[in-house]
Design a protein around this nucleic acid. Structure first.
Lengths: 154, 154
DNA sequence: GTGCCACTTCAAGTCGACTTGAAGTCAAGG
DNA sequence: CCTTGACTTCAAGTCGACTTGAAGTGGCAC
């Protein structure tokens, strides 16, 4: 497969593929002249990488999940840890969403006077030390800002 | 209040406070010589900003939630939209977490042979066209835990 | 009155994950 | 054989949210 086909079948831009190769996340099996040739299994690999990203792993972390031979070498402890982290994040986001929902319909004259809202504020101010979960959605307002806007098909 | 006190009471670094002021997210009420003086209400404002960030709003979006007089001018439609977005994200992350959990205990010889894992892979691959992190940041007591929050630091 | 040092400004740097642009190469169709 | 244009490399740019560093200022304890 040449790079164009990988792009077509994976949806990942060529520049990203080259970047991934440079970082050692994928590899090409040879060249036709200058042009890279890929083994179809690269598609599986890309799916794995997408999975890692979606789960909140950095590319470096994801890279560590492959053995030298290219087979996934998944660290179960790492997975469990990430699962727990996701659980925390999910709990956080859920609270946040409920708060937003409430705020959207709250009848209090000012949100600052609404106990529910104040509780949310407190939570945000103190407890929120969670980080980095990933996945899903790019915000409409700043249309061109997000790399994802471009990535999402172009 | 001088900046040191705001730092102490909010946990937000002075550099961040200056940055926020520059961006118009907060304001100082005056100066003692060169030194900024803040109204205590800035603490509430900072909590609001933290809340916005935790809910996945960018600083610019958060800024739009304040009226000229500094009162929160919360756009209910925006809140609802964000709440829905969070719901999607939560659903995504939940699926992801369940997948990770499963992968961590899956007995299949290779994850690639496990149907559950393959299903996950498919989901990740198809989800490649959307991305954005809803994350939470913090102003934690431990002075520079902020760095930790932004994972992979220097 | 004087020295310390917390504060100030402003420019530049950082971080991750890519994208973009310029300039060059070359496989393949005509 | 020649042109075309998809591919290549490499350096630099982007984006958001800050941090860092150098150089300067001035409040306040002594």
């Amino acid at each position: 497969m040449d790079i164009a086909e990988v792009v077509r079948r994976s949806g990942v831009p060529a520049s990203t593929l080259r970047y991934y190769e440079e970082k050692g996340l994928i590899e090409s099996v040879g060249r036709q002249g200058l042009r890279r040739t890929f083994d179809p299994r690269v598609l599986e690999r890309l799916a794995l990488i997408a999975l890692g990203s979606a789960a909140g792993f950095s590319l470096d972390e994801t890279a560590r999940m492959f053995a030298a031979d290219g087979r996934p070498r998944i660290d179960r402890r790492m997975l469990s840890a990430k699962a727990r982290e996701l659980t925390r994040t999910i709990r956080q986001l859920t609270a946040m969403r409920d708060g937003l929902r409430h705020a959207a319909v709250c009848p209090a004259p000012s949100h600052l006077e609404c106990p529910t809202f104040r509780r949310l504020l407190g939570a945000a101010a103190s407890g929120v030390r969670r980080k980095k979960a990933a996945s899903a959605k790019s915000a409409p307002p700043p249309a061109r800002t997000r790399a994802a806007a471009t990535r999402a098909r172009r």
